[in-house]
Design a protein around this nucleic acid. Structure first.
Lengths: 151, 151
DNA sequence: CTTTCTGCAAACGATTTGCAGCAGC
DNA sequence: GCTGCTGCAAATCGTTTGCAGAAAG
């Protein structure tokens, strides 16, 4: 029922993050660990302000820079919300594939799992899409509405 | 197979647009007509630069302002792509419900229809989502990849 | 005429980047 | 000690907005 954020155990997760950073030629610096830890604890995609609120020791520019590098290294992923702030979450290979509930009022994003047969239906459509000339390699499915606080 | 952009006939479409503008207390000015016509002809969501390229007589600020008003009036809709430009298309009530193919390289967006049973599956999930505290009123489903030009 | 639009230019705000000093290995 | 990382402040760039003159009705 809850999104499976334990797709990889906590220990393995940090090991995996470390590995990917090294593979990308990046140091596992303190502020990068902080960013990753914030995302792990949140369990949902966070905006830059939300990340900074969680750990005030972090400089804004460094947070942005780290997030970009984490995305490039396959550790994090950028998520589009409904307001003018991007959100960031751990890469799906670390948390498991899932989708999002997006609040169109405040921009809050929560994870949401869908049935396997729904995912199977998506695979079928990819073939149809490729006949339109696109080479498909991902999808995004979001339910939009009002979160509990904004409803 | 092709997205049904003839959900409303051309004549009815302009009448419907006119009606919605009036209902919103807006005049059906020439530049608003131009913006709507560009979107109608495109048959896919366009970025601001794409809209301006199509009709150079349009001032950038007016185009942005008109698009915002058209969105508020229920005539147009903002679509998130993969680059840093928003896209705009006619409201689904005018073109019919559809989804999008998004090029992660150039940001190009094309319309894409999905089977009815897939849409039905979405309806089922809305109930599950609302048990997480969200009041759902829309969804977005995009297939992401490389368009024919970028592949 | 009065109200709404338009274009120009300036303002905004999220994100990015140059640079000088600090930290990791 | 190099090399990469951080923070600060400045730059970028899509988008928004104030304002004076131009259209719509």
């Amino acid at each position: 029922m809850n999104p499976n954020h334990d797709h990889v155990s906590a220990v393995d997760l940090h090991a995996a993050v470390d590995l990917r950073l090294r593979a990308a030629g990046l140091r596992n610096s303190r502020s990068r660990q902080v960013v990753v830890d914030v995302l792990v604890r949140a369990g949902r995609p966070l905006s830059l302000p939300e990340i900074l609120d969680t750990d005030a020791e972090l400089a804004q520019s460094s947070a942005y820079r780290n997030l970009g590098e984490l995305v490039d290294a396959g550790v994090a992923r950028r998520v589009e919300s409904a307001d003018d702030h991007a959100r960031f979450e751990l890469h799906e290979s670390l948390t498991g594939h899932h989708h999002h509930l997006v609040c169109t009022s405040c921009g809050r994003v929560e994870d949401f799992d869908v049935p396997d047969d729904f995912e199977a239906g998506i695979d079928v459509m990819v073939d149809a899409a490729e006949s339109q000339g696109f080479r498909i390699d991902a999808h995004r499915f979001d339910l939009l509405g009002r979160c509990a606080r904004c409803a």
